[in-house]
């Protein structure tokens, strides 16, 4: 619980942060809210020699609409996500999910960018971003590029971030009006990672499912976008048979670790239960 020695840097521009990252190489890590990285450092599972705190850089936080996207700055805290009227109106699932992250003290510090960029399979935002088909703005010394959340995660703590790149913003296509949504998370206690969780976005026409997108949290080394499960539901009336096949399809792509939250078979089944419950709740909320 005693971290190794590190140098602390606090650049004021994204350019200088990127320059520092490139100069210091693999021994440097960007620091956002610190709620994933610092616990790793305390247990010495991570021992970066340099921390580049992004808190001093202007313009990295905020929530705004830009044409058909919602743009959220990387340093926007979970507390701000919860308080945003724009998100409550356009994408309330972000608020619902944020409220299930840890506790208020942590949400004052934890950021969407850190949560998405760290590649920790236990984080809640990555699967949600896959569900919402978000794009991540990655800034390096050759400018900025966009990567789909669905393409970003390569393994546990392994992402598409190239050396010297910083995730600076998240762009989320504005969800359709009247959509239904739900984030269902099974956890042992406040502050624990999910045993399993499911994010569902759905649109309905009458009692027919027109579109559905499903993200699964903490049931594999990466967040999972359950594409096949979603496909099985489109055009159905979400009858028991279709839901059962979708749940089976979602369970089939999971590959959870056995840990104190439960053995792998339990966590797979819980992904299914969470999906089933999220689908029910999302459908009840869809108004179209």
């Amino acid at each position: 619980m005693i971290p190794g020695t590190f140098a602390y840097h606090r650049p004021t521009t994204i350019g200088s942060a990127v320059a520092l990252l490139i100069e210091l190489g693999e021994d440097a890590r960007p620091l956002a809210g610190g709620h994933s990285l610092i616990p790793l450092m305390k247990t010495r599972l991570a021992s970066p020699e340099h921390l580049i705190d992004l808190a001093g850089i202007d313009g990295l936080s905020g929530i705004a609409r830009s044409d058909d996207d919602i743009v959220i700055g990387a340093m926007t805290t979970q507390h701000s996500l919860i308080g945003s009227s724009l998100l409550s109106e356009l994408a309330p699932i972000i608020r619902e999910t944020s409220l299930m992250i840890a506790d208020p003290q942590i949400r004052y510090k934890g950021t969407i960018g850190g949560n998405c960029a760290n590649g920790d399979p236990g984080n809640d935002m990555p699967a949600l971003m896959q569900c919402l088909n978000a794009r991540y703005a990655l800034t390096g010394n050759e400018g900025s590029r966009e990567v789909l959340a669905r393409d970003f995660y390569l393994g546990a703590y392994e992402t598409a971030l190239a050396a010297g790149e910083i995730l600076t913003a998240v762009r989320i296509p504005v969800p359709a009006a009247g959509h239904g949504y739900a984030y269902e998370k099974l956890k042992r206690k406040v502050g624990d990672y999910a045993t399993a969780a499911a994010a569902v976005m759905i649109t309905m026409a009458g009692d027919t499912c027109m579109s559905v997108s499903i993200g699964l949290t903490n049931v594999a080394e990466t967040p999972l976008w359950a594409e096949e499960a979603g496909r099985l539901l489109v055009g159905t009336k979400l009858d028991e048979g279709s839901v059962a096949s979708a749940v089976a399809a979602a369970e089939a792509i999971t590959d959870p670790a056995s840990d104190m939250r439960g053995p792998a078979d339990y966590r797979t089944k819980m992904a299914g239960v969470m999906l089933r419950r999220a689908l029910e709740r999302a459908r009840s909320r869809a108004t179209a």
Binding site: P39, R188, K189, V190, D259, M260
Partner: peptide, 9 residues
């Protein structure tokens, strides 16, 4: 993180 120490919740 793993040891179950319940919170008020």
């Amino acid at each position: 993180m793993d040891f179950f120490l319940p919170t008020a919740v």
